[in-house]
Design a protein around this nucleic acid. Sequence first.
DNA 1: ACCCTCACG
DNA 2: GACGTACGTGAGGGTA
Length: 928
Amino acid sequence: MTQNHLYLVDGSGYIFRAYHQLPPLTNKHGQPVGAVYGYTTMLWKLAEELGKAEGPTHLAVVLDKGSHTFRNDMYDQYKANRPPAPEDLVPQFPMIRDATRAFSLPCIEEAGFEADDIIASYTKAAVAQGWKVTIVSSDKDLMQLIQPGVDMYDTMRNERRGADYVMGKFGVSPEQLGDVLALMGDSVDNVPGIPGIGPKTAAKLITEYGSLEAALEAAPTMKKSKMQESLIAHADMARLSRRLVALHDAMDLPEPLDDLTLKGIPPEPLQQFLDHHGFKSLLARLGAPAAAVAVAAASAVVSDMAPPPPPVQDAAPPIDRSQYETVVDEIALDRWIAEATALGVVAVDTETDRLDAISCELVGLCLSTGPNRACYIPVGHGGRDMFAERPQQLDRALVLAKLKPLLEDDAVLKVGQNIKYDLIVLRRHGIDVAPYDDTMVMSFNLDAGQSLSGHGMDEAARAHLNHECIAFKDVVGTGKSQISFAEVPLDKATAYAAEDADVTLRLWTLFRTRVANEGASRVYQLVDRPLVSVVAGMEQRGIKVDREALSRLSAEFTAGIAALEGEIHELAGQPFAIGSTQQLGAILFDKMGYKGGKKGKSGAYSTDVTVLEQLKAQGAEIAGKILDWRQLSKLKSTYTDALQAQINADTGRVHTSYSLTGAQTGRLSSTDPNLQNIPIRTEIGRQIRHAFVAEPGNVILAADYSQIELRLAAHMADVPALKDAFAKGEDIHAATAQQLFGEVNRDTRGRAKTINFAILYGISRWGLAARLEIPPEEAQDMISRYYERFPGISVYINETLEKARERGYTETLFGRKTWFPRIKAPVQHERQGAERAAINAPIQGTSADIIKRAMARMEPALAAEGLGEVKMLLQVHDELVFELPEADVAAASAVIRRVMEGAAEPLVKLSVPLGVEIGHGPSWGAAH
DNA sequence: ACCCTCACG
DNA sequence: GACGTACGTGAGGGTA
């Protein structure tokens, strides 16, 4: 059996080198991919090494994760000089992970450690087992690892390097290299070294004295010189530098060595990746015999080796609630904090006495640092009543003061399930939790649209951990006997709450690899994750609502409703519940004899707007009155009454709650109250919008993307006629009318508008026919003409559907997946429904991605212009609503427009401009 | 708990 | 040839 040979690829180092050495390529989606291309060719070269004598049997790509490592704690200036990564390189980082995944290679990254340390640790472990190691990198720091059995490989120069290379370049052996590097210093990493000493002098000193320590000790006896004085003066700097350049080789291996076995490179994902980016020359080689050989050789490696170990099931032990700890003393609390800090990642969950984060009281917190390692820290049991009997527990202020450094520690990742809630609760106590991961958002980015109905923890635990969580209602009861969490006994509370943290961390362990392996990193890291804290801020801020104005409207509506009710009963000849569709149907169709058939599976009469409009057109006076009654009832119950009840007593404002995982396409949704469906289309409803007001001295500013979905459709389906019209700033529906009907008037423009929207939603001839009130054949003609004039549209639709059928999901320009499990349903109308949704999802989803990016960038952009008083309050799919001092309107408008119009860049380059319309006034209604 | 209706993008 | 609407949401009221 051949000797195992581990290849460790310094992915991060490679990316920067490729970026600087290759021209700024872009792929067919307009994304910058120069570094990705270089990286891909490097992996390709490695793939060709497979099966050769010195080729790999095991391989891992190692990447940097985050920027804060233990070296920053050692020396706060470490890497402080390093400029931020270039703007067009940043979006390529997640694509590097995609590339790695396309080659089906394991990828290792670990927070708190640089890629160099991971490589050092793996090298040490492999050498200890008698393996050979090749480090794929040209980094001088890594050359310290060269030793018998360990060499380096520079794929760009196609050169293998051993100890003689180091001797030739630095004049010392690899084991002395660390001392030389410490003396030299490194301006890029900001390792200080000793001023005036470069590579030559350093090498001379080390060769002469044998080591850095020996040279420093001998310094006072050396011949007097500038260098000698410097050596004495900066000895401490040299010692610090020595520690900075030392590689940490004793970390716990995130993946066992044996898991790095090369299992062959299946061609399909690779082909998909190359195809996606349009790397044509590599694609051609993939089909060529050479690649076939490489792939075959890769498979041969597998068959040569011992059979692969059985797939690791869930390596974590089953959930054991008896191991959870209730923390009621400071020593235990300190121990948990130390453990979490050392680990660098901790699951966090807060327990409160009610559901809304804005007004709840904190009852307890939990932490988890590993499977079954979880604790519950009660701080508010016994409730809000200060005199009630309280179980023994730590003081809330003390616990929060102790937890604050952990929760704000850059080097400790906080993991939460729906962490937006915890962010708000803790921010109310002066704690800004960062950095964070959210398992609910990760689940959404992986599985949106999959058969699971939501991304809640109980469901996720069932699906992914095969575990049934304690149900909240089993802890607090239901209905009248329901108690607050503050009243739950500590043992029960600990079992429930600590389990949540335990499960959250377990889910995170699963999701983080899946996010990396399934191409979700980009949308998670660059779109959704940064949004969580932004949305938390918006919810916490709320918007002011004029209670008196709503109350006046309520009274007006009440009077109108009463008057209409009388008239309706009069016309019907009897009193009845107008709100009951059942009774209304009976009155209209059975008693009064109007025509209008049964509908729906329930067999009940339909009485919706379209039906009532038809009756009205037939001359049924009652139908119009019912429509008016319905409008007023809706406005009163859903808006004027409900909204008053939602005003927070402490803030005097309304705080909605946004769901980041509610809409399958990636849109946000808003609940309690829903502020994304405040009336605007009718004059009477619009008055409700006028009740959303600014504080004295401030104004409300609303910024809307204009026709964003149509613009995206024009870009994604590549329709030159539509793109030109947008580029010229033309009225898009008029332009469509011109194309379809040859003339523009009110009628043709209106029909064109209907068709344009129909396209976005996935059209059917019957749907269009119903909308335009024309026969289906005529509608079909119109659709055909649309496809003729805009051929890109039908190509887009067909390609989207084909991909959805083949892969099961659609993707936005930012890589957001939406799954369509029913796309192959045998029942026709289910399947067709899925098809229409699949046509719409990439467009609606890309629009959602874009506004989310604008939101994530908005506050820093405003702050950079000294506009810290400008507050983002609401998002309504294509609109952002702000409150700001009147004096800031002009400056803020410019920033807001710039951020919104440029939100796709640089990740995605659009071939149509994005337009933004901005208005302001004393109220939301006035801002439109 | 479910259906219907209707508010928004 | 029949299907009975468009895509994505959330809330309130009536009914079983």
